[in-house]
Design a protein around this nucleic acid. Structure first.
Lengths: 194, 194
DNA sequence: ATTATCTATAGATCTATAGATAATGC
DNA sequence: ATTATCTATAGATCTATAGATAATGC
């Protein structure tokens, strides 16, 4: 039953990866330690050899998800033929992202649950938020650093809010109107930010 | 033990009111039927004489919360000495709203949990979202109806996202930067929307 | 007589722990 | 010998239901 140290380290990574996906899919409360361990092919009892509590895994999974998201943003903006921020906004507010919260932005998938998480979780998310804002500042069009940071925060807020509103709507027409309107307006708005 | 029909109707209202507050405070999953009934001064067993399921109460509580919020927005904008939308944005992105999710916007308090709720709940929220967007359209500055609606959707998205980001942050300085930046940028952004 | 509420409970689920098992690694 | 994982379980909690109780309202 015992596995090598290398395999155990792999298991740990697999648990964090599975958790990052499953939590975004089902919410922190509706995904149990047992669910995640089963997905990795282990039993729930072994979990506590890897982590001291479910909360510890939640914090690690949040940071993992946010780091992966910013890395994906980097690729999307690098591949953009035209305006990098505009390409990112279209990518973020796509129907594809809407339909796959488990593979997308953690703040959009779990944002309103974060305020009720223990401080270790919020601290991990804060690190991720800073990375996201810093990345967006780099592709924002403003002339000064201060201005680009303001543009980054505004763009992030509008994208997160737009996606959450779209996911909370039962009518496909309103949903698409929200995604399209925000995607279309953010680039103009960013340029107007001072 | 039995009460009059009038009292029973009052109890029903009290249950919905308590639920609307407690759900925004703790999330749908972390507030039990028993918690809500206890707050109203009843026992959990009597709940099913009022509602067929917890989900039914969730839907009613969501609609209640959103309707109350839009009513409050109306008052805030009516009392504004200057620009009505600007006053509303400042009110929404205030530290006071940040600190009291249970008395504020449902989309900011529970937004990312909505996509996982049954369709009856999402339909109730959609009704509320339409009311919110229609209200914001009325105080938006655009020349045409179509333009004002776009401005309303952008402003709502930025406000929701800004509040959720602020509540998910553990650092007070970053939190305040997010609230201030979005509050300051939305009015300019709205004017730039076309 | 009807029915709003209460008491008690079935059935399900979840986190965390304890001790057993069996493979690694000194 | 050490330890990663497994089996089993304690303790807690939640939704929903069933039957009892006692006050309303015909």
């Amino acid at each position: 039953m015992k596995v090598s140290k290398g395999t155990m380290a792999e298991h740990r990574e697999q648990i964090i990866t599975a958790a990052a996906r499953r939590f975004r899919e089902g919410g922190f409360d509706n995904v149990s330690v047992g669910d995640i361990m089963k997905e990795v092919g282990l039993t729930h009892g072994g979990f506590y050899g890897h982590f001291s509590s479910k909360d510890e895994l939640v914090a690690l999974a949040c940071l993992r998800a946010m780091t992966e998201t910013v890395a994906k943003w980097q690729k999307v903006s690098d591949d953009a033929p035209g305006d990098r921020l505009e390409a990112l906004v279209d990518f973020y507010l796509s129907l594809r992202h809407h339909d796959r919260p488990e593979a997308g932005c953690l703040v959009a998938a779990l944002g309103s649950e974060l305020s009720r998480q223990p401080s270790a979780v919020k601290e991990a998310v804060t690190v991720g938020q800073r990375k996201a804002i810093e990345f967006l500042s780099r592709i924002a069009p403003g002339k000064t650093k201060v201005l680009r940071r303001k543009q980054a925060i505004l763009a992030f807020a509008a994208m997160v809010g737009g996606m959450i509103m779209a996911r909370g709507t039962s009518e496909p027409q309103l949903r698409q109107e929200i995604l399209d309107t925000v995607a279309e307006s953010v680039p103009n708005s960013v340029r107007a930010t001072s």
